[in-house]
Design a protein around this nucleic acid. Sequence first.
DNA 1: ATCAATTTCACCCGAAAGTATGAATGTAAC
DNA 2: GTTACATTCATACTTTCGGGTGAAATTGAT
Lengths: 153, 153
Amino acid sequence: MKFILRHKLSILYGIALAVLLLVLKWLEIKFIIYDHSLEVYIGAIALLFTGLGIWLAIKLTKPQVQVVEKEVYIHTNGDFVFNEKAFEKTGMSKRELEVLELMAKGRSNQEIADALFVSLNTIKTHCSGIFFKLEVKRRTEAVETARRIGLIP
Amino acid sequence: MKFILRHKLSILYGIALAVLLLVLKWLEIKFIIYDHSLEVYIGAIALLFTGLGIWLAIKLTKPQVQVVEKEVYIHTNGDFVFNEKAFEKTGMSKRELEVLELMAKGRSNQEIADALFVSLNTIKTHCSGIFFKLEVKRRTEAVETARRIGLIP
DNA sequence: ATCAATTTCACCCGAAAGTATGAATGTAAC
DNA sequence: GTTACATTCATACTTTCGGGTGAAATTGAT
C-alpha cells in the first residue's frame, strides 16, 4: 500500500505507456492487416507521440518558483512577545528552542550540554536541526534569524 | 521533518538508483524489438515525435510561474540608540565595530573579510581584539554582550 | 498496538573559528 | 622624530563547530 502511494507517479506513467502500446498494436492491426496505407499508420504514430511528448513536458517541467518576500512589520513596545505562529512554522521542537535560547546567550555547545545535562553530541544534533529548520548555516545566523522572527528577545 | 533531514542523501541515492533501473528496462525493451525492422522504424518515429512534442511544449508554452509568498518579519522597535559611552569604555576601534556589526548579522569571518575587502587573517585579528575588549570568548557571546550594552540594535 | 516524531548518543571528518606571535604600514599626537 | 595606536597581513597551532550517518529509547497520537 505504501509502495503504491510512494510510486503513484511512476505507476501512472507505466499505465499510460501500456495503453499507448495497446493503441499502437490496435492501429497496426487495423491498418496493416487490412492493407490500408502505411503512411496513415506512421502519421497516427507521429501525432500520438507528439501528443505524448507535449503531455510529458507539461507534466514533468517544474513550475518556476518565484519567491515574493512579503514584509510583515511587528510593533514591539519594548517588551518581548514570543511569536507562537513563527515558532510553529519553523517546526522546531521544545528542546531545540531551549538550545537556541542558550545559544543566543553566547554559550558554547559544551556549556549548553552541561546546562541541560546531556552529551555534547546531543547538542550538536539539536543544532543541526535548528539550522535546518531556520534555514541558516551558522549559530550566529540562527540567533539573528530567531530574534528577527520573534523566537527570542 | 527530521526524517528528511536525516535521510537526505539516502533519498538522492534512491532516486538515482530508480533512474538507473528505468534506463536498464528501457534498453531491454529496445533490444527485444530489435529484430523487427518495421517496429524499430515505428519506435524511432515514436521517439522522434515524442522529442518533438517535448520540444514544442517547452518552446511554445509560456513558463508557468508559481508565486510563493514568504513572510519576512521586521521588528519596528526602531528606538535603538547607540551607547557612545559604553563604546568608549570598551576601547574598541571603528573598524572593530564594523566587524562586530557584521558578526551580529550572522556573517562568517570569510564573508566579513569579503565585505570589507580585507583578508581573512585581518578579520581574525579584529575578532580577537573584539573578544578581548568585550571580555568574551566566542562570537555569539560577543554579539549578546554588544547588544546588551547598546552597541548594536 | 503501532507508527511517527522526539530525544538521546556516538563516531568520523572537514571547515570554521579562535590563539599566539610577529611584523609592515599609516596616521595622529607629543 | 618618536611614541602610540590602528590597520593590515602572515604562519602555525588548537579548539570548536557543523555535516553526515546510524541507532536506541521514549513519547504521543491514532
